[in-house]
Every structure is written in structure tokens, then in C-alpha cells.
Design a binder for these strands. Structure first.
Lengths: 188, 188
DNA sequence: TTTGTTACTTACCTACAAGTAAGTAAGTTT
DNA sequence: AAACTTACTTACTTGTAGGTAAGTAACAAA
């Protein structure tokens, strides 16, 4: 792993742990054993670094979508949960939750990067729920778009609230999400 | 309204809009037409101010709970939604979402204040859902605690994601929450 | 071999944040 | 009237943040 990628990885971790405005260049340079100015060699400024982190995360989302493409709806959902689980164990929140909660305190370019990513995630989950309902794998009322919004926000804020109430709360949320889309015998 | 309360109100707004770490004393003193040091007269430091804001919010929650105490479950839920609506129109997020997403970047005393408040909200909503289910007003699967967690996180992150995708997304979430607890004809 | 490029470091600058000590004007108490 | 309290302001200190200009060691290309 080259220095540039190490900087990106460290910055990503910091954004998910303390937020964009709460980390400094030293929080990256000291653990990596480099100087602050080395970060400026790879990225013109903090804003560009922030954008690069979000764009890389977005690329990872796209790769991940292709990876899980052939799985069935429940497996896809479980894989989706696993993304949040990985953050949960490190007391991190998700990128969307971190940047959007600080949205009016980050540069506009970062908002644009985040927007593109959120649209993608939202669309993927909406299609998954729609497909699952069509196949009878999932059951829920109302538009898939609304259901997708509830699912993704429960997970995002689930990571946040779990910091306060413990990881059990996050487990409860995942279980409830599953219960809420599990088919029952009624056919209304 | 005295200066102390004006400082508290301004600080609360800033926390909900840009987060605890992204506002400075000048963001409070300039609009109020006072000097930075005046804030230090009323509050020893930023940490104490942050705690005072959360504690006041917690007190408001307690008062609010008493206000809505006699309403029926659906009315209580609508009143709960209204709290989030009021933040939505100002592009604010909720106190719990703001502080918990920056939790490892705020002083420990603030985390303690937030914890007490989150426990209270969580308990109130759990009891509401439990009561609603007992009365047949609401219908959902699994423990009320898990359902409460899904509802409150959907609303909290709903405010966050609505900053990126627009307020329609928040409306979708509220509708979906209602659909997901509306009784159907099945009696499994 | 000299020229250029990559990947940094050294040393420095500017801005601004939080915090504080001392002062002050207005009102309150004794 | 003297002393004290309230609610600030003035003026200052300290720390740190992001950023930059200039230098350098290692290696590659012409």
C-alpha cells in the first residue's frame, strides 16, 4: 500500500470515527510516520482529500454491487447488513451518516460527491426491495422507495445510536428490519 | 429572553445545523451583538455550554412527554413526527443525531448528558408502541423495543438524508413508518 | 552526465479558536 | 455613601489548524 492510499484509508477511518471537521492533518501524518506537508503533496488541501475519500467509497460501493449481483434478495440484504456490521465493530458510523450530519460544515464539493453516492445506494436498495416483493421473498406495504429509505436510515442512525446505547441496539434494529419485510400468511 | 437563554438557543441551532465542532463562539456572539467573553461569563467553556444545551433539550423532552400524555397512540406518534418536522423545515437534524454522529469528537460530559436523554426518548417510544399494540391501534412483529429503535433511527437519519435527497425523502419515511405499524386484517 | 521527476521534509506563515485577566457601568444592598 | 454584585467589554495569551515555499534524496530518462 502506497502513501497516498494509506492517507486515504486513515482519513476515511477518521471521518467515520470523529467526522470531517474533527480530524487534523496531524491525525493522519503522525500514525503514518510522515509530515503534514506530505499529505499536501498528494492532495492539494483538506477539501480535496475529503472528496477523494468519498469518491473512493463510492467506487467501492459500485464494485460491491457487482459482487453481490447474483445473490438472492435475502442474501443481498445480509451482505448489505455486513457492510454496517464492519463499521459497528470499530465504533465507526457510515460515510453517508457522517458527512450528511455535518453537511453544512463541509465544502460544497464534498456534498456533491456524497449526493452521487447516496443516490446510487438508495436506488440499489429500492430495486432490491422491489425485486424481493415481486418474487414473494419480501413483504411490505407502500412504495419500495419509502421502504428503502426506512431501511437505510435505520441502519445509518443505528450505528450512531449504538454508540450511545451499545451494539445490542444495532442488533435489535437489524432483526426488526428483517421482521418487517418477512412475508406472513395474509394476502391483503 | 435574557442573554443566557439567547446563547443557549443560538448554540442549540448551531449544533443542529453544523454540529458541535463546527461552530465557534463568534457564531454565537456576532448575531447576538455581544462579545465572545460574554459567553464565558455565562458558561465556563464550550464543553459546559454544550452540556447545558443538551440538558435543556432533555428538559424540553420531559415537558413534552407530559404535554402529550393524554393523547391516543396515533396522536402521540403524529406529535412525535412534528418534533422532527420542525427541524426539517430549518435544515436541522435532531440533537441525538448531531451529537451521536460526532460522539468521539465531543467531551465525555456531553456524551453522558446525551445518554440520559436517549434512554428517555427510547423508553417513551417503546412504551407508546407497546401500548398501541396492546390496544390494537398498532400492529407489528417482534419486541416493541426493536420497533422503537427502527422508528427513532429512521426519523433521525431521515433528517440527515433529507439534506442530501430533499425533504420528500423525509415525507416518504414518515409515511412508511405509519404503513409499517398500521393494522391489517390478518391475525397471525 | 545533466536534466527531470517523484516523493517527500524543513521551516515557516496566517488565521482563528478557546480561554482569561482586568476593567467598567449600572444597579442593589447595607 | 460605601461596598458589593451583575453583566458584561477590552485586550491579551496560547494553541493549533490548514496551507505553502523552498529544499533534498533517490531514481529514471535523454
Amino acid at each position: 500500500m502506497n502513501t497516498r492510499d494509506k492517507i486515504l484509508a486513515t482519513a476515511k477511518n477518521l471521518i467515520l470515527k470523529v467526522g470531517y471537521n474533527a480530524f487534523s492533518f496531524s491525525d493522519i501524518s503522525v500514525p503514518l510516520g510522515i509530515k503534514n506537508a506530505a499529505i499536501h503533496y498528494h492532495f492539494p488541501g483538506k477539501e480535496a482529500l475529503g472528496c477523494a475519500v468519498i469518491r473512493k467509497e463510492h467506487e467501492n460501493v459500485i464494485k460491491w454491487k457487482n459482487e453481490v449481483d447474483k445473490l438472492d434478495p435475502w442474501q443481498k440484504l445480509e451482505r448489505f447488513f455486513r457492510v454496517y456490521d464492519k463499521n459497528m465493530v470499530h465504533n465507526r458510523i457510515c460515510m453517508v451518516g457522517s458527512i450528511s450530519s455535518d453537511l453544512y460544515a463541509v465544502p460544497e464539493s464534498m456534498r456533491d460527491c456524497l449526493h452521487a453516492m447516496v443516490v446510487d445506494i438508495n436506488q440499489w436498495l429500492t430495486e432490491l426491495l422491489e425485486e424481493g416483493r415481486r418474487l414473494g421473498t419480501f413483504q411490505f406495504h407502500g412504495p419500495a422507495e419509502g421502504k428503502a429509505a426506512v431501511v437505510v436510515t435505520s441502519l445509518a442512525a443505528g450505528l450512531q445510536i449504538a454508540r450511545v446505547l451499545g451494539s445490542d441496539k444495532f442488533e435489535q434494529i437489524k432483526n426488526q428490519i428483517k421482521l418487517d419485510i418477512t412475508p406472513t400468511k395474509d394476502d391483503n
